[in-house]
Design a protein around this nucleic acid. Structure first.
Lengths: 337, 337
DNA sequence: TCAAATCACGAAATCGTTTAAGTATATTTG
DNA sequence: CAAATATACTTAAACGATTTCGTGATTTGA
C-alpha cells in the first residue's frame, strides 16, 4: 500500500508537504504541488479513509437504520426505493452508506453505540418501529439524524404526505360519485393513524358517513389479511361501493377475493391502493392509487442530513413534507347519474 | 468521547493494560481485568472501530457492489432479498456492510479504489453488468471477493441454478403434456445464456422441437416488452401451448395481453415465470415458477466471504450452486389425453 | 537457597493522515 | 538598508487502539 510517506520519500519533501499538496493547500509552491500530484498518481496512491477519519473525526459515512421487524423490510419496494435514492444522493455529496444494526457479531450494542463505533457522521432512520427504545435513544442523541415518516421533538424528519394522500384519494373517489367508502388499514403505526384520521376527516368534510364496520384492520404488505377483510366487506348488507387498501401489494389479496366472488373491478366494486409501486401501474385494470415519492424522500433525507452534518450551526431541524401524486387508474368507476 | 486513555487514568494503569483487559488477554490479572471492565462500563466506553481498523488493517466491514444499470436495481425483489440476507449473515459474523460505488463526491474512483479507500476486508459483487472493466478490475484484485451469478477464474462465486431451474420447469411442463413451448428471455447476460442453453438442451433431450420464432427477446423486469412478445406468439399459426417468461414480474405484461385477447390462463394458454417472488404466490391463479433462493444466496455469499477473509490460506475459491425450487402453481394446464 | 520459570504489567512504537507552530529564505517597504 | 512581510517548507504532535518487547516481582523446582 502506497502511503503519503512513500510519496514524501520519493519526492524528497516532508509528509506534511505531500498532504498539503494533495489537499490543495496554498502554502505549497505550484510546481511542487504539481510534481507531488504527478508522482502520487504514478505510484498509484490512494488516500486512506480510516486514517483520515481518525484524525479528522469525520468519516464521510452515513449510517442507515432499516428495521425489518415485519420481515419484509427491504423487500418492500417503498423502502428499497428510498434506500436506492438515498444512496445515490449521499454518494453524490461524498458520503458512503453503512447499515446500522443491533448486535454486530457477538458484541451486543444498540443502534446509538453502533453508529458511534463506526464514527458515522449522521444517521437516516427508516424504521417502522419507532416504539423501540433503542431507536428513540439514537434519535435523541447528539448524532445528527433524519427520520423518515416519524416526528421527534426538534429533529429533522422527512414525511410522506399521508394526510394529503388519503385526502386526495377520498376526494377523487367522492367526485366519481361514491358515498359508501370502506378502508382497510395496516398495523397501528403513526403513519396508519395519520391515514385513518385523514380518512375520517375528509369523509366528514364531504358529508360522508362512515359506519365503523367500513374500517377494517389488516397488515401492510399482507394480501391474505386484506383478502379476508375484503370478504367481510362484501358480506355486508350495505356493501361499500369502493374499498381503500393499505397498500398496492396487499390489494392483490382483495383482487383475488373479488375475482373469486365474481365481483368485477371496477364495474361491481371500485378499489384503490396506496404507494404507487411499479406493480400497480402494470396491472390491468391500472390501479388507482396514491404514489408516495419514495425517491424524493430518500434524496431529501440524504440532502438534509448532509446539511445537518456540514452546517450544524445554521441548519435548523425541520419537517420536510414530500407530496406524492394521485394516480388515476381504472379501478374507480364513475357512478355519477 | 471516552477513550482507553481515560480509563487507564481512572484506573491508574497503562493504556496497554486497559486494551488487553478489554480484549481478554491472559497476561492481565483477573481482578485488574474485572475492575477495568467495570470502570469501562461505568464510564460508557465504546471502542473506536476506526482506530482499530487503522492499527489492525482489518475493518470488519464488507463492501457490497450493486450496479443498477437497469435503473431498477435494489427495487427488484430478487436483489433486495439477497441484500437483506447478506446483511443479516454478515452482521451475525461480526461484519458491517457498506455500499461500494464509483465516484464518491467529486472524487472519482473505481470500485477497487473505493473498496481500498474504505479498507473493506472483502466485497460481494452483485451486479448485472460483468462486462464493466471496473467490475473486472475489482474481481481480479487482491481483495477477497464473492461474485453472485458470475464465474471468474479462480474466484469464489455463488450461483443460482439457472440450468436446473429451466430444466425443472421444462420437464414439469412436458409432463403436463405440452410439446409446443415458447420462451421469452431477458437481456443478453451470462444468466440469460445459461437459461437459453438449458432450455434448448432440455427440449432436445425430451424430443421437443423448438422453432426459432418460439424464442423471443425481451428484458427482465419489463412487462411491456413481455406483453409485446406475448402478442407475437399469440399471432402465430402454430401458437405455443405454454410460454415461459423472463421473470415473474415481466409475466404481468403477458398476463395483461392474454386477458385482453380473451385467452384464459391456464385453459387457453399455460404460462410460467421465474424467480418465485412473493407476488407470484399471491396472484390467482398462482403462478407456476421456479423460486430462486435469494436468501440462501445472500447468506452463502456472506458466509463464504468471511471465510475467505478469515482463513485466506485454507479457504479455496469455489463455486457454490444454490438450488431453487419448482413452485407448481396453477398456470400450467395438464393437457394429457 | 539460588536459578529458572511464571505472572502482571508498562514503555514505546505503530497504523496513515492532518495541522498548528516554527523556520529558513526571499521579497517588499518605508 | 533594516525591518516587516511573504513564501515555501518542516517538525512534531495528535487521532485511538494494539502489540512487541521488556522488566520487576513472585513463585517454583531441585
Amino acid at each position: 500500500m502506497i502511503t503519503i510517506k512513500d510519496i514524501s520519500e520519493r519526492c524528497g519533501v516532508s509528509r506534511a508537504t505531500v498532504s498539503k499538496a494533495l489537499n490543495g493547500h496554498t502554502d505549497i509552491g505550484a510546481d511542487t504541488t504539481a510534481h507531488i500530484r504527478r508522482v502520487a498518481k504514478e505510484m498509484g496512491y490512494l488516500p486512506n479513509a480510516t486514517a483520515r477519519t481518525l484524525k479528522l473525526g469525520r468519516s464521510h459515512n452515513i449510517g442507515v437504520l432499516f428495521v425489518d421487524k415485519t420481515a419484509c423490510g427491504l423487500r418492500h419496494e417503498y423502502f428499497s426505493s428510498i434506500l436506492d435514492s438515498l444512496k445515490v444522493e449521499a454518494e453524490r455529496r461524498g458520503y458512503d452508506i453503512t447499515f446500522i444494526s443491533k448486535d454486530i457479531g457477538e458484541f451486543s450494542m444498540d443502534y446509538y453505540e453502533h453508529a458511534k463505533y463506526r464514527n458515522c457522521d449522521g444517521v437516516v432512520i427508516a424504521s417502522v418501529d419507532f416504539s423501540d427504545p433503542a431507536v428513540l435513544k439514537l434519535i435523541a442523541s447528539e448524532i445528527p439524524t433524519v427520520a423518515l415518516d416519524f416526528v421527534y421533538d426538534n429533529r429533522t424528519s422527512v414525511l410522506s404526505d399521508n394526510i394529503g394522500g388519503i385526502s386526495a384519494l377520498v376526494h377523487y373517489i367522492y367526485e366519481m360519485g361514491h358515498r359508501r367508502i370502506a378502508i382497510i388499514h395496516g398495523e397501528d403505526t403513526s403513519v396508519t393513524q395519520k391515514r385513518l384520521i385523514s380518512f375520517h376527516k375528509t369523509c366528514a368534510s364531504l358529508g360522508i358517513r362512515v359506519p365503523e364496520y367500513y374500517v377494517k384492520a389488516a397488515l401492510y404488505h399482507d394480501p391474505k389479511l386484506s383478502g379476508l377483510a375484503t370478504r367481510e366487506l362484501l358480506a355486508l348488507s350495505d356493501r361499500p361501493t369502493c374499498i381503500l387498501y393499505p397498500d398496492d401489494f396487499s390489494f392483490i389479496g382483495g383482487m383475488n377475493e373479488l375475482e373469486r366472488q365474481g365481483v368485477s373491478i371496477p364495474d361491481d366494486m371500485s378499489v384503490a391502493g396506496y404507494d404507487g409501486i411499479l406493480l400497480s401501474q402494470v396491472l390491468r385494470p391500472r390501479l388507482t392509487t396514491y404514489h408516495q415519492d419514495a425517491e424524493a424522500m430518500g434524496c431529501e433525507a440524504a440532502a438534509k442530513l448532509v446539511e445537518l452534518i456540514e452546517q450544524p450551526k445554521t441548519s435548523l431541524p425541520q419537517q420536510i413534507m414530500v407530496s406524492g401524486q394521485l394516480l388515476k387508474g381504472d379501478t374507480v368507476k364513475n357512478i355519477n347519474d
